[in-house]
């Protein structure tokens, strides 16, 4: 019998992980969210609140939680409105949660992270594995928060070896909201002239599967997760149905004054990611955890372009209808 708490269950990813975990009858899922969940959570129970550390300890102890999934990060489900609030939520929120887990005797914590925390650099190996340290400079916004969280988690895991802390460094997700895919889908997305690095992506379906799988199996330390194929930035833009417009650097980086959200979204992360690669090696997740991505990067972009609608497949729709009508009452 496992009791799992999902922090950040309100978003699309959280709701899907909750439903996925509920498929397993042995798992009890408790959700915690800052806002009313956007999607149904299956048989999970949830709580809408912003808890501080001590309140978290109380919740974890009262519900006898043994596993925590942390996906409550600002900037993953919607654009960030305030940097300060985002740092509070992403960095301080995760530190609070890890402290509470330690106090409440939680055995395992799985934290969502990003494969770009290594930073983009010409000195990156072609395939980065988990032994490479997280970049301490050259990142901004959401990635910088995650890099800070990663550094904290590394130290935390060293000091508390009896608690399993795993971070899933996922390539940019396709499906649901994503700042990157948003950028690619706007008219004439800008690229740095003369550069076209390779990027990796991960289908949200694979991300859901990975979070559930890693939560239910013992794991610790960082794991890189990405789809098996890679795409060039220009190719990703074309797959999103747009044409890239090569421009010089100053036209891509958002100037300090220009932070109004009504403006078309500029390149959402550090401009170095338009110049250099940050391709990760997923060997560890595959061989130690038996995880494997089911969806390719290019295929998932094409699928998202159809607005996430199911393909017009009569047989699949018929099967879905039968399954719904015969569901357990």
């Amino acid at each position: 019998m496992r009791r799992v708490l999902i922090n950040g269950v309100g978003g699309v990813l959280g709701a899907r992980v909750a439903r996925r975990l509920c498929e397993d009858a042995d798992v009890t899922v408790i959700g915690l969210s800052r806002y009313e969940p956007l999607a149904p959570l299956g048989r999970a129970e949830w709580l809408v609140a912003q808890l501080n550390g001590l309140q978290l300890v109380e919740l974890l102890e009262a519900e006898q939680i043994d596993t925590v999934i942390q996906i409550d990060f600002a900037g993953t489900e919607a654009p960030v409105s305030s940097r300060e609030a985002a740092i509070q939520q992403n960095v301080i929120g995760t530190m609070d949660l890890l402290g509470a887990c330690l106090r409440a005797g939680v055995q395992q914590v799985v934290v969502r992270s990003h494969s770009w925390v290594y930073g983009a650099s010409p000195l990156n190996p072609m395939m980065i594995d988990e032994r490479r340290p997280v970049a301490r400079s050259g990142l901004r916004g959401f990635l910088r928060d995650l890099a800070e969280v990663e550094i904290f988690m590394g130290e935390f895991a060293e000091q508390h070896p009896d608690m399993r802390v795993a971070s899933l460094r996922m390539a940019p997700l396709v499906g649901g909201w994503s700042s990157l895919i948003d950028y690619f889908s706007q008219p004439w997305p800008r690229m740095l002239i003369g550069f076209d690095p390779v990027i990796q992506l991960l289908s949200i379906n694979d991300a859901v599967e990975a979070l559930a799988h890693f939560a239910l199996n013992p794991c610790s330390g960082p794991y890189n997760l990405a789809a098996d194929d890679a795409v060039c930035i220009s190719q990703a833009i074309r797959l999103c149905g747009q044409l890239p417009s090569p421009t010089i650097e100053s036209m891509i980086v958002r100037s300090k004054r220009d932070v109004s959200r009504d403006q078309p979204q500029y390149w959402p992360v550090d401009v170095n990611f338009m110049r250099h690669t940050c391709v990760v090696d997923t060997h560890r997740a595959k061989h130690e955890m038996g995880w494997a991505p089911q969806y390719g990067a290019a295929d998932s972009i094409i699928a998202t372009r159809q607005n996430g609608q199911a393909p017009p497949d009569r047989e699949a729709s018929e099967a879905a209808l039968r399954a719904f009508l015969n569901r357990k009452r």
């Binding site: 395939m127 797959l239 044409l243 290019a298």
Partner: peptide, 11 residues
Amino acid sequence: ARGEYTIDPYG
């Protein structure tokens, strides 16, 4: 132009 080609992870 539609982006329908494949590259390997090294580019």
